[in-house]
Amino acid sequence: MILRRIVYAFVLLLAVLVMNFALIHLAPGDPVETLVGEMGGATPEFIEQMRAAYGLDQPFYIQLATYLGRVAQGDFGFSLYFNRPVLELMFHRIGPTILLVVTAVLIALTLGTFLGVLAAQRRNSWLSHLVTVFSLVGYSTPVFWVGIMLILVFSVALPIFPIAGMYQSDTSATGLAFLLEVLHHLILPAMTLALIYLAFYTRLSRASMIDVLDSDYVRTARAKGLKNYLVIYKHALRNAILPVVTFAGLQFGQVLSGAVLVETVFGWPGLGTLAYDSILRRDTPTLLAILFFSASLVIVVNMVTDIVYRYIDPRMRAEQ
């Protein structure tokens, strides 16, 4: 079963690559004409020669095969602007992005589930209404704008957190001190990214918990005199959390998209800022490689969610 899941993930990855390539192919503009234009013109024979040299005279599927072969060897092309291989560029950016995204998702998931459970227990309390309002607001606010507003409040008006970056550019801290410095820089961007999804998870876990609390086995658990927190956190939450986990996996692509915007706002040195910089420089190979890499990340996360899901839900295991 897990093997089938992995094969499927590979097929998806391949599909992303094919689409990447098809996009460049479909895009207007002829690279050879551009190059020739920059050189100040050339004879038709020379243009033909260049086309052959770059393999651009080959049919679509041969070009595609060449591209796939290169990617398989880890060659994602060369960034003309940064003057380095794309893979090397991305390599240093992956860690910061994963740090940011994972922190944000963890904050949103734990806090969101907790708030949702609280709200579900008292359906018409002020807390429940507050959760509804909060999730509406969270859904409606552009994430990059939240980031800027948080900077205005917590970095400018009250200088508690740094405005941008992952560490001081002239940092001399090492070890634990460096870790704390990164953490200090991480708080605002992670909170910004978490806020949007916090609203979503809160609402989802509230709805799912309300469903579960009405079920017979919860009534049974109460009837046999279990303490409230045991009923909630041991019996009910186990089932209520399933849709939340599923959505957390499915939404990962969206979280990454949010990360692009948040990183841009906070100058966080991850894939998102790299994507922003490559847009400014119209650096297509870099942007395509980032798209491919992010898609792979989402595919892997989805696969892991699937497997975790099986672990949480014994019914799924029994079905096999």
């Binding site: 998806l12 599909a15 992303v16 990447n20 996009l23 499915l250 692509g253 969206q254 990454l256 998209s257 949010g258 692009v260 915007l261 994507a275 847009i279 297509t284 942007l287 395509l288 980032i290 798209l291 992010s294 898609a295 989402v298 595919i299 989805n302």
Partner: peptide, 13 residues
């Protein structure tokens, strides 16, 4: 397939 695409990055491209 479209669900796993990071929406924003794809639209950016």
């Amino acid at each position: 397939f479209f669900q796993v695409l990071p929406y924003l990055l794809f639209a950016m491209v």
